[in-house]
Amino acid sequence: MELSSLPAVVPPEPAPPRPLLRFEGVEQLYDGKIRILGPLDLDVVEGEFLCLVGPSGCGKSTLLRIAAGLLRPTRGVVRLGERVLSGVNSSAAMVFQSFALFPWMTVVENVAVGLEAAGLGPRERFKKAEKYIALVGLSGYERAYPKELSRGMKQLVGVARALAVEPRLLCMDEPFSALDVLTARTMRDLVLDLWANPEVTTRTILMVTHSIEEAVAMSDRVVVLRANPGRVADTVSLAGLPRPRRASDAAVREVIDRMYGLLA
């Protein structure tokens, strides 16, 4: 290594945080003509909670689907470490806006389905599924069907299902927008707790939201997107703001107002 030839007295510079996922010149065209997104470059850094905010039509959900490998960009590439992503991103798991639970499966079957696809045996996958159901606080509901749960509980199942496959990247597509205000607030705190919980292996979160307040309350960094076509308007770091952040706090209020200014 070349570093070792340097004089030992110079302290090694802290390595720049490694990007887990890197978008390079990503573009999405509709019908091959109308540009809805990009060209756009963006890094998702290992261990961060990154939020994408922007008006409807800015392509934030599209960007998330590209990150999860559910959609192939018309142009450009997504890198996962060194590798260029092709097909479904197996190091990512997704939480959907409409929960997207399989109505014909019980809670535990829903949570275990990704593990089954990954080739885990029945005993292992149910053990692991039960662990994550307990982590989101749904113990006792393992045998219930999604239909029997409230909306908030359904999204908890969605979160447990995504975390259970122990992805390096958790993708969340407006996960709280189908919930009432109070439930959404509880869910935000719960996701932050899970993120801080050492039992949860997932460290990096990429979340799409249309709510600036939600982005500021939760994330380390907010990428503000502009519409038509979707481009990065600005990136705001929130590293200096300690959690829990409440909108009544002056410093938090100021960041929120600044972001509204960016979007106006």
Binding site: V88, A92, F96, F102, W104, M105, V113, G114, A117
Partner: peptide, 29 residues
Amino acid sequence: LPEEIVLAAKQFGLRGPLRWSRLILPAAV
């Protein structure tokens, strides 16, 4: 079938026979 359910199946790796037995067949019931 709602698009997000199809996407979820894809995202959680349901392919081949498993896709049939866990997604298509139950949805068709």
